[in-house]
Design a protein around this nucleic acid. Sequence first.
DNA 1: CGACATATTGATATCCATCAAACCGGGTGG
DNA 2: CCACCCGGTTTGATGGATATCAATATGTCG
Lengths: 211, 211
Amino acid sequence: MTSGSGPIVSLSELTYKRGDQIYGKDEPTNYVCQVKKGAVRRCRLLSDGRRQINSFHLSGDIFGLENGGVHRFTAEAVVETTVSLIRQQSLEDVAEFDAVLSRNLLSMTTSNLQHAENHMLLLGRKSSMERVAAFLLEMDERLAAAGVLSLPMSRRDIADYLGVGLETVSRAVSQLHRAGVVNFIGNNQREIVILDRHRLASFDQPSSARS
Amino acid sequence: MTSGSGPIVSLSELTYKRGDQIYGKDEPTNYVCQVKKGAVRRCRLLSDGRRQINSFHLSGDIFGLENGGVHRFTAEAVVETTVSLIRQQSLEDVAEFDAVLSRNLLSMTTSNLQHAENHMLLLGRKSSMERVAAFLLEMDERLAAAGVLSLPMSRRDIADYLGVGLETVSRAVSQLHRAGVVNFIGNNQREIVILDRHRLASFDQPSSARS
DNA sequence: CGACATATTGATATCCATCAAACCGGGTGG
DNA sequence: CCACCCGGTTTGATGGATATCAATATGTCG
């Protein structure tokens, strides 16, 4: 996060264990967070246990910027995670006079909106296989390191992000594995190698010829 | 839309017939639009005909503000609709020096984001009945005039907004009608009276006691 | 009045959720 | 070191919510 006069210093760093809540729904939005290490999920829970994960935030991502004074989602650490905090008030103070920061805040919110709107198409209209393929491609883009996709989140997290059951995610990944599109490192189901990115993309596509 | 120095004048007004495209996906974002009369849908189409409507925009709403130079969705008139246009460039020029306008742009984008994130929960996790009940309540809030809910959009539009089939929408509304929760004005299925708002809300709720 | 779009209602098919069981790796403690 | 457990994952079997197909109303417009 930068302003017209250089980067803004962060207030402090905190580390959370996997599963820990970073902030809760309806808590006041005093801080904006940046992920230093690990991964964060922003989610909402229905009283009967249904859960929707709106977004994952990985190393470098900023999250927790919301207007209206209270968080509309819960944020939790997916794995051991450290985040740095920035006072929201101080951001707003600076933005008042700093057009560069102001534009940065807007473009950050806009890109969150873009992501959300893409996800709405996925949730509203895509088949379970298309959802899983799209997910793997998204994560590949965001955290591909040396060709290995090292997913921090569980099948259940993925399922709640994609709006399907966790068994459905498992079956889709297995099917991609059997089709020779992805592979696992050792027997760790969270370490995935994408063997054929192009063919994977074809699974997130209306069923014309699917090789 | 207001800035620090009063309202911003619009460039011009245009009227579209029902079904007309206002702008297309991937067109350059030269203009931001405000609905004067009628209703607009912003949607995306998959090659096999599946469609997702991300948002409806009613009288007074502003839409079409997107970063990145191109529209990521198609905007179409749901019914006969007139919109007024504002040059996006002129907005950005003013925002550079006008903190009030700048904050307005941000809060507009934020409220779009809020809507999108609420909709993600609906699309990812809610039953068809919950979706329809939520839809009626949303529209009731946004265009309730004298207790009558006068929907401008077809069942198909509603279905593509809620991520279900149009017959499913029809069945849910019928069920609410039979349950005495809503009623129709004459025989027009788009003129709806909500007889019991509280009971309707209970249909958008995990199945505890549903009266 | 007939032609067409839109909506409802019914019958059937299908995808996916759910229930259930087996599997697997990792940690713990005897 | 091995037995055991435990959370996460896979795989299989079944049911159910909703998509899809089809037929019938109902409304609209020329």
